[in-house]
Amino acid sequence: MRLKRSFRYAMYAAFAALVLTGAGWLVADWQKSAAGDEIWQQVAANLLMVHGGVAMLALLSLGALIPMHLLRAWRSRKNRISGSIMATFNAALIVTAFGLYYLGSEVIRPWMSWIHLSAGFALALTFPLHVWLGRRELK
Rank of each mutant, 00 (worst) to 15 (best):
A97F: 14
A122P: 00
S84V: 01
A16H: 01
A124C: 08
P67D: 03
A122Y: 03
L57K: 00
S82P: 04
M1W: 04
L60T: 11
W132I: 11
S33V: 07
V43L: 15
Y102H: 10
Y102F: 15
V131K: 12
G63L: 09
L20N: 03
E38C: 00
A23V: 15
L57W: 08
Y101G: 11
A45R: 13
W74H: 02
I39Y: 11
A55W: 06
I85S: 08
W25G: 07
E106I: 08
S82N: 09
I39T: 13
W25V: 03
D37I: 01
V50N: 03
A23W: 02
W30K: 05
Y102I: 02
S105P: 04
L133Y: 05
A58W: 07
T88Y: 05
M68F: 12
G24M: 07
W111M: 11
W132E: 08
A91E: 05
Y12D: 07
E38P: 02
L123R: 01
L117S: 06
P128D: 09
T126K: 00
A124K: 02
F89C: 10
G24P: 01
I81G: 05
G22V: 07
L123P: 01
A44W: 04
A13Q: 04
R136Q: 15
P110A: 13
N79F: 05
F15Y: 13
F15L: 11
R135K: 14
L26F: 15
K139M: 11
G104Y: 12
W114F: 10
M68D: 09
W74A: 13
G22R: 05
A91M: 12
G52N: 11
T126W: 11
I85R: 04
V50E: 04
S76P: 00
F127W: 09
A23R: 00
G53Y: 12
F89P: 01
E137W: 09
